[in-house]
Simulated assay, not measured.
Amino acid sequence: MPRNPDATRARIMKAATDEFATYGIAGARMDRVAERAASSKERIYTYFGNKEQLFDAVFRNYVEESLAEVDFDAHDLPAYAGRMFDHFADDPERLRLSTWYRLERAGATPLQTLIDTNDLRVRRIAAAQDDGSVPSHFSAVQLLALIQALSTSWATMNPEFSALAAPISRRKRRRTVVEAVARVVGVTADTPSGAE
């Protein structure tokens, strides 16, 4: 049977995504990735380099998929926050990858994709502030930080608080995020019923 390098890389990426989301970089084991991908550790190293480079490839892929899935609209930041909430609620693995990235790659070479994404979003918010669509009582950087934190707030609680918040439905959690961001930017939240 002829080898298909693209299919092998895709299997490795899927297996590595699952492994890193569950165990982080330090806890991930390349032999488990190889087994799940029906490949070998040697092939993984050939395609991706070491474990940290494989994680960076996984995280870069995650960021690019997220950018394609979650439209950023500086003129409707509450709706964007709702879409971000959905993005993480639909697949908690995404937030786990982000958490491991922050914890274990803080001193590594920054990913250009993230630099470019953050820069673009800050510039779009600043432009919306300049045209009066978004208030400027917070800087564009402050607003982006608040929106990102509010969008992931329900998913980042400690287990004890999660238990306390368990009776609150996903719909109400999403609505809370959208309304909170609306208040931060001084607009009225308008969440389509289908998105709740």
Rank of each mutant, 00 (worst) to 15 (best):
Met1Trp: 04
Arg3Cys: 14
Arg3Lys: 11
Pro5Ser: 05
Ala7Met: 04
Thr8Glu: 13
Ala10Cys: 15
Ala10Leu: 14
Ala10Thr: 15
Arg11Lys: 07
Arg11Gly: 12
Lys14Cys: 14
Thr17Cys: 09
Asp18Glu: 12
Glu19Tyr: 09
Phe20Gly: 03
Ala21Gln: 01
Thr22Tyr: 06
Ala26Asp: 14
Ala26Pro: 08
Ala28His: 06
Ala28Val: 13
Arg29Gln: 09
Met30Lys: 01
Asp31Ile: 04
Arg32Gly: 11
Val33Phe: 12
Val33Lys: 04
Glu35Gly: 05
Arg36Ile: 08
Ser39Arg: 01
Ser39Asn: 09
Ser40Lys: 05
Lys41His: 05
Lys41Phe: 07
Glu42Ile: 11
Arg43Thr: 14
Ile44Lys: 01
Tyr45Thr: 09
Thr46Phe: 06
Phe48Trp: 00
Lys51Val: 12
Gln53Lys: 00
Ala57Arg: 01
Phe59Asn: 01
Arg60Gly: 15
Tyr62Phe: 09
Tyr62Lys: 01
Glu65His: 07
Leu67Trp: 09
Ala68Tyr: 00
Ala68Glu: 02
Glu69Pro: 13
Glu69Ala: 15
Ala74Val: 15
His75Trp: 03
Asp76Ala: 13
Leu77Cys: 08
Tyr80Phe: 15
Met84Gly: 03
Asp86Arg: 03
Asp86Thr: 09
Asp86Ala: 14
Phe88Ala: 10
Ala89Asn: 05
Ala89Arg: 01
Ser98Gln: 03
Thr99Cys: 10
Thr99Trp: 03
Arg102Trp: 13
Arg102Tyr: 13
Ala106Tyr: 03
Ala108Gly: 06
Ala108Asp: 03
Leu111Asn: 04
Gln112Glu: 05
Gln112Pro: 05
Thr113Phe: 04
Leu114Ala: 07
Leu120Trp: 09
Val122Asp: 05
Arg123Cys: 08
Ile125Cys: 14
Asp130Ala: 13
Ser133His: 01
Val134Ile: 08
Pro135Thr: 10
Ser136His: 06
Ser139Phe: 14
Leu143Ser: 07
Leu144Ser: 06
Leu144Gly: 10
Leu144Met: 06
Ile147Lys: 00
Ala149Trp: 05
Thr152Phe: 03
Trp154Ala: 14
Trp154Arg: 01
Ala155Arg: 03
Ala155Thr: 10
Ala155Leu: 14
Ala155Met: 11
Pro159Gly: 09
Glu160Ile: 15
Glu160Ala: 15
Ser162Asp: 08
Ser162Pro: 04
Ser162Glu: 04
Leu164Thr: 09
Ala165Cys: 13
Ala165Phe: 12
Ala165Trp: 07
Ala166Thr: 03
Ile168Tyr: 13
Arg170Asp: 08
Arg170Lys: 07
Lys172Tyr: 12
Lys172His: 10
Thr176Glu: 02
Thr176Asn: 03
Thr176Phe: 06
Val178Asp: 01
Val178Trp: 01
Val178Tyr: 02
Glu179Pro: 05
Ala180Cys: 11
Arg183Lys: 12
Val184Trp: 01
Gly186Pro: 13
Val187Pro: 11
Asp190Met: 08
Thr191Asp: 14
